[in-house]
Design a protein around this nucleic acid. Structure first.
Lengths: 206, 206
DNA sequence: AGGCGGTGTTAACAATCGTTAACCACCGGC
DNA sequence: GCCGGTGGTTAACGATTGTTAACACCGCCT
């Protein structure tokens, strides 16, 4: 019934045929973002990728493991991306680069942002610790850079500032409308949020 | 086993003995914030207030109704508080007053902030529409005030700015530590977030 | 040809949860 | 001194859900 394109066996499709596993992860992000982890059943998830029910256990050991993979992956991507941008010289430039990176990420993958800040509590203990550690390291990246720009700022205050900027930049999922000349609107939002973040970072220290 | 102070029958206790109903709402906010709506069972909730299980049905028609009351109440309080602060003259002063109000609210009741932005999707349809309408009106309060300060800003852009500032101010729940000389720390955070928000609002228009 | 790993399917299970039923204790007012 | 309302209890029900079992098909490799 699924009428599956078996994907051309000879060469890679134009843009890398997405494996079933990746399809599942993508749909899971979408559905978890919309309805919350507990608001999506395994059956719903299967239906969303065209298979039904327990077929998911061929790809993941369980529902929580699926969430864990989503959240660990996004945390690692954030941390890696952040690390790439804090190396070179000028701390002010590094801070701006962090802002650009984070806002681009949040704009490109709003579902993952939503899931990460909402469903952390539904992770099994070990995965949750892992994600928390990655997140904390990412925050410290910001804190260190910020304190190189403003040496007077206490660590606790810098952390408040960092969390505040995350909240600001992560507000993209609550965009007024998703359609309406999407590209233009998204670009404009990015520019606005960028300006706001840089101003907020500058104003933070007394 | 509960060893309940029956609360002095003659006069009101020093600070208004909290009714069982209010106890339940308070604990519900705490638990929903920590574990999510679906992560808290009716039995958990009962246990948290010292009764067990279905006793809650003496006070609320159901679990969803409980959530609805929490969210509608907070939305109304935000809207009412906002309305009180946008009346008089100077738009710039009004905007600052909105910031002060919102950050105070988010600092005083972080659990409600978390629940509101996380569990809206778990509301039954009618209540969700009600909450959405209240939230939208609150946002429009900000949008109108912002556009009186910066007349050039388009409505869509102003909405982006407002949501961004909410994200910034609502970041208080992710405070570094809840203890550590709580009062001092909270006051300092409020001041930092206030400065950041005002700077971001000023920088938003091109 | 034959077997095997990968990927589905449906049916069944056990657990959990929201909700209801039936019953009971206390307490203030006629 | 009964009596009803208020707020509590435990037991049971029905639905949903995550997970497992048992089975089937298909393409590839030897």
């Amino acid at each position: 019934m699924a009428a599956a394109h078996p994907s051309p066996p000879g060469g890679a499709a134009r843009t890398e045929a997405p494996s079933r596993r990746d399809q599942i992860l993508t749909e899971a992000a979408r559905l978890f973002a919309r309805h919350g982890f507990h608001g999506v059943s395994i059956a719903d998830l299967g239906a969303a990728v065209g298979v039904s029910g327990p077929a998911l256990y061929r790809h993941f050991p369980g529902k929580e493991a699926l969430l864990a993979e989503l959240l660990i992956d996004i945390s690692e991507r954030l941390l890696d991306g952040g690390r790439e941008r804090v190396g070179h010289g000028d701390p002010r430039a590094a801070l701006a680069a962090l802002v650009d990176f984070h806002v681009a990420f949040a704009t490109r993958e709003p579902e993952l942002i939503v899931v990460q800040e909402r469903d952390l509590a539904n992770l099994p203990d070990e995965a949750r610790r892992t994600v928390r550690r990655l997140q904390r390291t990412y925050v410290e990246l910001w804190v260190d850079t910020l304190r190189r720009v403003h040496p007077g700022v206490a660590p606790a205050e810098a952390r408040t500032v960092a969390h505040g900027v995350f909240g600001l930049l992560n507000s993209t999922p609550y965009a007024p409308r998703a359609d309406q000349a999407a590209a233009r609107g998204a670009d404009a939002r990015v520019a606005v949020l960028r300006r706001m973040a840089l101003a907020a970072l500058d104003a933070a220290p007394a």
